[in-house]
Nucleic acid binder design. Structure first.
Lengths: 339, 339
DNA sequence: TACGGATGTGTGAACGTGCACACAGTAGGA
DNA sequence: TCCTACTGTGTGCACGTTCACACATCCGTA
């Protein structure tokens, strides 16, 4: 028969008894304090003999600290499958938290059921803070976090985000403007955009930057609106644009994946890149160097974003005020072959 | 000044006092039992008035159950950036756990520091079980799990895995054999393979299947050995193969990403696909439909693998014996344009 | 009337930890 | 001699929850 509780785990009591000491002394060995060399040695051998592992749940209950930070990915379906950045952001955050001896735990929110359960999890004392990625306007998770006053950091921020919740991101407006200007200065005149995710700050801002760069050249009809940052949307968006204006000679795609899809649609329409049409992307993800031709794009410092968000949390845990409420990281242009 | 503990959180005591009831009754409202309608109503209004949220740490301490299951991704650097399957496996596992009202928490192990901390986390009572992805031979995490007798499920299994730890995977040998046979039956005669990750079971088994399918046709010199399942490795591996035998007319790539890289190298060498060379991949990931031509490949049921691993854990938590120690999921061939 | 069962409620203990406190011994200085 | 400081150890309590048990009330029936 299988046993629900396989073997009783050793506790501080057991260690104390085995070493002929009291619980307090065991605790001091673990957490620092005055302990004689013999006592320490006796307790340490007892611990390794009995295979002692401290009980996090009890520690968290007593200390009100779990040494864990949540990494919440909202609506990750498209994120994990199409957006290569999320992985880098996670790894960046994990590396920074790891250095401070905190455990990063990633939570995935796909359904309403998930939302509720994750909200309970966040408020239940299992984590000391939360990094939230890709929150949408009015997400219930946001409410939970601000109600609880849980230390938090948003990666990108939805338009209606509470003012005093810090966020980390990039200057989407400025970067979009810069890369669009690259198209202009290299002689493109009929420039369109495949805009995506217009319900998120990133999508809205990239469109705004595009518009600002073009000024009077901006033409509303040359903006194709697609739902997601993925390859398929790129193919469809590009076909759409070509239909609206066959004389198009420049395209700003809201992501590298979209740009890759656009390249495909252009190839199928018999246009050469960068000869007939200049294409630029956004993200500098693995897509950028896989494409033929390789993409000129905006480098998004995903790893740094992750580690920066982690720092924001750690500062709050130390009781410091998160200095700049919002933090924007630099995004250099990467010039390759597509424009 | 910032306050370390923002506001005192309401406890069952506070709720009981506010509702004029005892803690026991509050607990019964939460967990079921005999409660009168009035008492229930009073307690429920008190709970929403005070914004009560149960403390998971206390519950976990008392119950010895956290209702959380870890999803441990070992050496995820390449996983998250190159392997599109890991995301689907995660989402599949999360969906299944979600249905059973369990929280999936993903842990990332990149460094030795991570290994130790994750081991502590797993043994500390914050999770009831663990799904382990992509374990390598002799990973310390494996030892921790079997020492603790923590309910576990491996996705794929390293060659030296303890016999009684259940795993979920696919029949890499059989699938590789089947897809290679497709090359043979469509008339290819000089068939090479780009083999990857020969330190993992998946890599070893795919090579074995390839060899078995070819029988006497197998030629040791037509196997290019690359370290990872990624695009860049595909490009390099294909160049290598073409150099070894320019008359090659078929290639089995150990992953779709590798196949995509191979297509690139073939294009650069002026070979047509599938005209001159037939190419087949493995995974049926998003790569497969992005390529030109689209890939004939082996469908890997990533989502099902995840949910199956979750089921294995849930069964163990119910005290059932994990019925089949190892479970292999079917992998249909997907015929597209590349061979 | 008395009894057993169903329904409803309160109380004490325990989960495993860390910390405040109490206590004991030693040493140095006024 | 007394006071203080430092080192080393043991004890009680609290963190917030759940569960077993005790108690209380009501009903139907013997």
């Amino acid at each position: 028969m299988s046993r629900p509780q396989p073997q009783k785990r050793a506790t501080v009591h057991d260690i104390a008894a085995a070493a002929g000491m009291s619980r307090g002394t065991v605790s001091r060995v673990l957490n620092g304090g005055y302990v004689s060399a013999e006592a320490r040695a006796a307790i340490e051998t007892a611990m390794s003999d009995l295979g002692y592992v401290p009980n996090n749940a009890a520690r968290a209950l007593k200390m009100r600290r779990s040494q864990a930070v949540a990494f919440v990915a909202l609506e990750p379906h498209s994120l994990f499958l199409d957006d290569p950045n999320i992985g880098s952001i996670m790894l960046g955050a994990n590396a920074a938290l790891s250095l401070a001896d905190h455990q990063m735990v990633s939570l995935v929110v796909e359904s309403a059921r998930d939302t509720e359960r994750v909200a309970r999890y966040l408020s239940g004392g299992f984590v000391d803070g939360a990094i939230v990625v890709s929150a949408r306007t009015k997400d219930p998770i946001i409410r939970v976090i601000s109600d609880l006053a849980l230390p938090a950091a948003f990666v990108g921020h939805p338009p209606d985000l509470d003012q005093n919740i810090p966020f980390v991101g990039i200057d989407n407006v400025g970067s979009a403007r810069a890369i669009t200007e690259h198209l202009v200065t290299t002689g493109r005149r009929r420039i369109g955009m495949i805009a995506a995710a217009l319900d998120r700050d990133s999508g809205i801002d990239r469109l705004a930057g595009f518009r600002a760069a073009l000024g009077p050249l901006f033409d509303e009809t040359l903006v194709a609106d697609v739902p997601h940052y993925d390859y398929g949307s790129g193919v469809k968006g590009m076909r759409d644009l070509l239909e609206r204006d066959p004389s198009l000679d420049g395209v700003f795609a809201a992501s590298d994946a979209i740009a890759a899809g656009a390249l495909e649609a252009l190839r199928e329409a018999g246009r050469s890149v960068p000869g007939d049409v200049g294409v630029v992307g956004f993200d500098d993800s693995t897509w950028a160097v896989r494409c033929q031709p390789q993409l000129t794009t905006v480098h998004q410092p995903a790893k740094e974003i992750g580690s920066c968000a982690a720092q924001v949390i750690l500062r709050q845990l130390r009781g410091e005020h998160p200095d700049p409420a919002g933090q924007l990281l630099p995004t250099p242009l990467v010039l390759r072959d597509s424009a």
